[in-house]
Nucleic acid binder design. Structure first.
Lengths: 148, 148
DNA sequence: ATATATGCAAAGGATTTGCACGGTT
DNA sequence: AACCGTGCAAATCCTTTGCATATAT
């Protein structure tokens, strides 16, 4: 078990045990800007941490999503993808996906209007439906330059 | 093969052959307000049209999505869901999902702001990335009243 | 010491593919 | 007649579950 870590505190208060798999998975996601699938995370971690199991990755990702550390989304290619929720406005983005070749483009323009729209919607949905809103996914899809 | 149908024309110009499975699937989706999965569509059609295959349903849904008749989306329970794109403002909606029990709430409020936001985003994304934007999915997720 | 997390193997499901037959144009 | 669409069965692929072991607190 590595030494003290920046998330350990927050993690303990929300969840429970701070373990190596949980640290390395969260650490990996916080460092990449990619939308990683469970398999990709597995492949990436295997180098540093052979012996880690895919099952643990799925379980940890689910836990991290439920506790608000990461976002989960699906973009039609059959596998779920995950990304770190940084909280920094800069790093927040949405997706534009090609339904033919699977290409994903991140965009983070219009954030001022979008942010306002999203915030307002979240608040109202929370109240109206008594939901604890944890996150959102906004996706536009279509055919990219090459595929259309 | 049923008689002439309201979509036949539009379908032919965009796609190709007008067949029974294609008609019944599109017809079913146009009549329901549910977010149906392939399996549910299969079960629903089986009564009227025994002998239809699940494979055909998947292939037809994919075709209908690619040609802009329906929307496809996923909400975390592992299966894709489909809904008719009516074009009518009233019927347009987005989703609020509980990540624990899987409950889906449709909401169609804020449509004026949202519509403007969506339209503007679509236009800009189309230009900037040279995309043919076919649709969008906006989802908020969290814990519902019972699960939080 | 005790409750929780992990890893492996197997199970479960959704979706896709190959191929011969049938239906549209 | 030619080509496209369909249906079945098998194959794939992602994700979840059962259970014995290892680990955090």
């Amino acid at each position: 078990m590595p030494g003290p870590h920046k998330w350990q505190q927050r993690f303990r208060t929300h969840v429970s045990r701070w373990t190596v798999p949980r640290e390395v998975i969260l650490d990996l996601l916080s460092r990449t800007s990619k939308h990683m699938s469970a398999k990709e995370i597995y492949a990436s971690l295997y180098k540093m941490y052979p012996g880690i199991g895919l099952t643990t990755i799925y379980r940890t990702l689910d836990l991290l999503m439920r506790t608000g550390f990461i976002n989960k989304f699906t973009i039609g290619d059959g596998q779920s993808r995950y990304e770190f929720k940084s909280g920094k406005k800069k790093e927040h983005h949405h997706h534009l996906t090609c339904i033919k070749c699977g290409k994903i483009i991140d965009y983070s323009d219009f954030m001022d209007e979008e942010l306002e729209f999203v915030k307002k919607t979240e608040e109202t949905l929370s109240k109206r439906h008594n939901f604890n809103v944890l996150g959102h996914n906004i996706e536009f899809y279509g055919l990219c330059e090459k595929c259309k």
